[in-house]
């Protein structure tokens, strides 16, 4: 997890022991491995070993039961030739960038409004609420809300819209999925960013106000720079979660245990379909290869994002 290192711990535990070390530091040093080891073992057990195994699996053909056959990079070649996989990668990037950018624009706008608002605590709770609801609930309810004779269209009819949009048409399906994602993610990131904004002393805003700054200038010159670290962590969190989007698409696009249309697949869904898909083909090799490609994608994007957003710490 990309959290900033605590100043006290920085550089302490990796250097050689020094004669001038205090008793507290020595005891800290002794506790270093006992405290770290459990997490390290769990990490290795549940993350590193599975990733290495997936890497190995991706070079094989395996149905989950019989012997594996080593086929080298064939699975990757198949993925590169598969229009469905390429579509899945494009969809994942759409989720990452389009949903991400819109979510953050909304979150910033809400931050600007919420800072001076009355009853902001209540509003924040309301905004956070969608995060608490399982994405699958949206998936199921959308079918009811947006159906041709559903409540949304009935409401539109009342206000005079005779020919309402075909919300659940296949062409709109992915857009609808993205809208639901924006709706549920905005509250989450607004809450995190707001907690950083709360730490900014009010006199910065007062001083900016005296200098004639409007809400936008205050946001641009006070909020943004002083909440930057938290925003960049949020960006990384979003990158990682967007690559894992799965259940919403499965429920939104799928009908009774059947696969959603391929035009809505994300890479995570592709991984699932290859291994446990409705067709019943258990292609664990292809599944692992697509998982590895997703992992590389998120790694490259996260590193890129971290570099882009990196800057010197600002003391408040």
């Amino acid at each position: 997890m990309a959290t900033p290192a605590l100043p006290l711990a920085r550089g302490r535990n990796t250097g050689r022991p020094r004669a001038s070390m205090s008793a507290i530091e020595r005891s800290r040093r002794r506790l270093f491995w006992p405290m770290l080891l459990p997490a390290l073992i769990l990490m290795a057990l549940f993350y590193l070993i599975p990733i290495i195994y997936a890497g190995w699996l991706s070079l094989n053909e395996w149905d989950g039961i019989n012997e594996m056959t080593f086929i080298g990079a064939d699975n990757y070649v198949r993925l590169a030739k598969d229009p469905v996989f390429i579509g899945s990668v494009i969809n994942t990037l759409k989720i990452l960038f389009i949903v991400g950018i819109v979510t953050f624009v909304f979150a910033f706008a809400l931050t600007m409004i919420l800072r001076d608002m009355m009853g902001k605590k209540f509003v924040r709770s309301v905004l956070f609420f969608p995060t608490l609801i399982n994405a699958m609930v949206f998936g199921i309810f959308a079918g009811f809300l947006f159906s041709p004779s559903g409540p949304v269209n009935k409401l539109l009819l009342l206000v005079g819209v005779q020919d309402p949009p075909k919300w659940l048409a296949q062409d709109n399906l992915f857009n609808m999925i993205m809208i639901v994602m924006i709706w549920s993610a905005t509250g989450y990131f607004t809450t995190i960013i707001m907690s950083a904004v709360d730490q900014i002393p009010a006199y910065y805003y007062e001083a900016a106000g005296l200098d004639g700054a409007g809400p936008w200038a205050k946001f641009r010159h006070v909020t943004l720079p002083l909440a930057w670290d938290v925003i960049s962590v949020c960006a990384v969190l979003w990158t990682m979660s967007s690559v894992k989007v799965f259940e919403l698409i499965l429920v939104f696009g799928g009908s009774t245990a059947k696969a959603p249309p391929t035009s809505t697949w994300s890479t995570a869904l592709y991984v699932y379909q290859a291994a446990f898909g409705t067709g019943g083909d258990r292609e664990f090799g292809i599944s692992a290869a697509s998982a590895i490609v997703s992992l590389l994608l998120v790694t490259v994007l996260t590193i890129g994002l971290r570099r882009m957003l990196r800057r010197e710490n600002i003391e408040i």
Partner: peptide, 19 residues
């Protein structure tokens, strides 16, 4: 026919015809 022939191959274009 078994496997993902329909899910990944046949369905997407048929859907366009049906719709």
């Amino acid at each position: 026919v078994s496997g993902d022939i329909t899910d990944k191959g046949f369905n997407a274009t048929f859907e366009q015809l049906w719709l």
